[in-house]
Design a protein around this nucleic acid. Sequence first.
DNA 1: GATAACTAGTACGCCAGTGTACGAGTTAGC
DNA 2: GCTAACTCGTACACTGGCGTACTAGTTATC
Lengths: 196, 196
Amino acid sequence: MSSADPRPRRRADAERSITRIVAAARDCLSRDPDATVDDIAKAAGVGRMTVYGHFRTRPELVEAALVEALRAGERMLGGVDLTGDARQAMSRLLASSWALVAESAALLTAAQRVLPEGRLRELHTGAADRVEQLIRRGQAVRAFRSDLPVTWLVNAVQYILHGAAEEIRRGRLDPADASRVVTATVQSMLTSSSGA
Amino acid sequence: MSSADPRPRRRADAERSITRIVAAARDCLSRDPDATVDDIAKAAGVGRMTVYGHFRTRPELVEAALVEALRAGERMLGGVDLTGDARQAMSRLLASSWALVAESAALLTAAQRVLPEGRLRELHTGAADRVEQLIRRGQAVRAFRSDLPVTWLVNAVQYILHGAAEEIRRGRLDPADASRVVTATVQSMLTSSSGA
DNA sequence: GATAACTAGTACGCCAGTGTACGAGTTAGC
DNA sequence: GCTAACTCGTACACTGGCGTACTAGTTATC
């Protein structure tokens, strides 16, 4: 279920245009979650029919774009050092995650709309697991609170990240300040305000 | 711009069906943000045409539903005591707000999709202002952090509330626990985790 | 009880976006 | 350089929801 393509043999040019289409999809959907298949085709410099030649339906294309974005994210997040002080590790993780989320917030929205319930989460487990593990580790050392469900904390972090992206989009948050704001918010969220 | 109806004279039965339609709209949209005009009409026990007799377009109907929901919210929130200890006041405010948000989360989403950018915010200022004022007061007394923009804090609270509603909808958060979780999360968010 | 307001059904035009069909041109790969 | 794969345009069917038109029946309200 990794990179085993359903169609074993494909011509090089096909491969190339698929790449371009997926890239375009990522790009368009990251700006407008309702981007049309036609929009994406145009952005890829390709006919709409070509798109349908490789992706049966729009949802399928959205999923491909998402998977690609997640893969890129994994690559980036994989390099983050999660050892050592839990809070500092969280800061590092957030610093890296933030850019990714900010960039792909709309894409996430798109996926949420067309993918079957739960599918997104399924694809997204990698990132979520990373956060969850770190939180658990932090809890064990009393660096993070334990009075709230871990699931909630993990998702709350997501909501904050997503929210910050939204705020920027609406011009209510200074992009230059965002990373700091997000980190500060999350850190305190993970700390009980009235004792551990 | 308050309750000055554009049409001065209306028959009693018309008034009644408008009420029923708006109520139905609130109800339907609170469950499915994509609810159709027809769905709403059916739920109101009324023909689709009757709906169009009172609301020119779907967005107009959505707005009416939203306004009604907000009015109900105002009524409830107006009774909350915001004096005294800022943190306790915030807890009280959250306890009341929570139920409202949980109930109308989907309606908010619907509004966000069809209303022109910013319109929602415009209608929603009442609630936002209340939170903002309270936060400012809390900051003045060093009860709340001052290292982050107030605007952000206010909106972050919204995102958390909205997120919690989503989590419940997906069965990932126990509704009975939600109020406590939300309150705890927000309270710590409003407190700097490394000194005021 | 006359009148205007309201309800409501059916039928329609419209629109945008999806996905299909066909067919002609182009290009990679052996 | 032959063949199969690929590209891509035009055209079209389909869908679902919106909003309009017309018409007939009902019901407040004076």
